[in-house]
Computed example of a mutant assay.
Amino acid sequence: MLIDTHLHIIDRLALRYPWLSGEPDLDHDFLYETYAAEARRCGITTVLHMEVDVDPAAMQAETDHVAGIAKREGSLIAGAIVSCRPEEEGFAAYLERQKADPFVKGFRRVLHVVPDDVSEGALFRENIRRIGGSGLTFDLCTLPHQAGRVTALVDLAPDVQFVLDHCGVPDIRSDAFEPWKAGVAEIARRPNVICKISGVVAYADAETWTAETLRPYIEHVIASFGWDRVVWGSDWPVCTRGGGLSTWVAATHAVLSSSSEAERSKLLYANAQRLWSL
């Protein structure tokens, strides 16, 4: 059993994605049907959709679009982590609408595509604190140099369950283990953060990486957070930069091969089931 907590659907007929113009390898349609056919072969049984930084005016439209796919017979999609703008005045009302929708499991605002001081704004932090007690999570998509800002934000909102995406986005291609290692360990000291082991093949050299290349990064995350605070995600289609979904699933199983069945089950599905009531 495998729960994928990080699927992106890109449908350019349905939604606008302004950032895609600068990413030619992703500036294509990556539709649910394509993903699902491969996911089932990999043993993936349940999926959370992750927002794809659509045009801000279309944030609700993205959620509605994915919810429509989830309603199809046999769909793997069980919920969504939706886009948000905590730095804006309208967030409080937006939060209340999302809390009323059981399909919505959490929020994300990608922080490495905006100035660092966005997460330091008083309104941003006040709105993040509003999430506390809602049962909704907040995904942190940041770069290693932002670890200090991550811990500052997390410490200001102890009642919010944060999720650190993509192992904290290590630069595996450049073998930049430090200071990423120290930053992840410091973030992991906060009990209200879990870490998503998702799509790190995209940060390795596409031509040369092996499971052993990824092993020290994945094992450091597990050692820092513990087996009860890690979940798995594909980051499809971004993972196609490093070999694709099937390759990433195989590498995950290779790295985890020496762990116990109980440990693997926590990372591969049980923690996600508990965290998002899947």
Rank of each mutant, 00 (worst) to 15 (best):
L143Q: 13
A37D: 13
I128D: 01
R85T: 12
H65V: 02
V54M: 12
I69P: 01
I172G: 03
A92C: 06
L123Q: 13
A61M: 09
A92E: 14
V163H: 05
R109I: 07
S83P: 00
G106H: 09
S119E: 12
R149T: 01
T151P: 00
T46K: 15
L76P: 07
L123C: 07
H112Y: 14
K99S: 09
A93W: 08
V47P: 05
R72T: 12
A92Q: 13
R72C: 07
L48A: 01
L95Y: 10
D171G: 00
E126C: 07
A92G: 14
C42T: 12
K99Q: 13
E51M: 03
V154Q: 02
T63E: 02
P86Q: 13
A152P: 01
V47D: 09
C84R: 02
V118Y: 14
L164F: 04
G68H: 07
I44C: 04
D155L: 05
L95G: 08
P170S: 08
L164E: 03
D155Y: 00
A36F: 00
H65F: 15
F107D: 00
F107P: 03
V104T: 11
G90Y: 09
S134W: 04
E33M: 06
R173L: 12
A80N: 07
I69Y: 08
G79N: 02
H49W: 07
A39L: 05
Q146D: 01
I44F: 12
I131F: 11
G90C: 03
P115V: 11
M50H: 04
A122F: 12
K99N: 10
G148V: 03
S119K: 01
R72G: 03
G68C: 09
A39N: 06
G132R: 07
A67W: 03
V160C: 08
I69W: 09
R108F: 14
T45Q: 15
L140M: 08
I81R: 02
M59H: 13
D175N: 15
S119W: 10
G168R: 00
L164T: 03
R130E: 13
A70V: 01
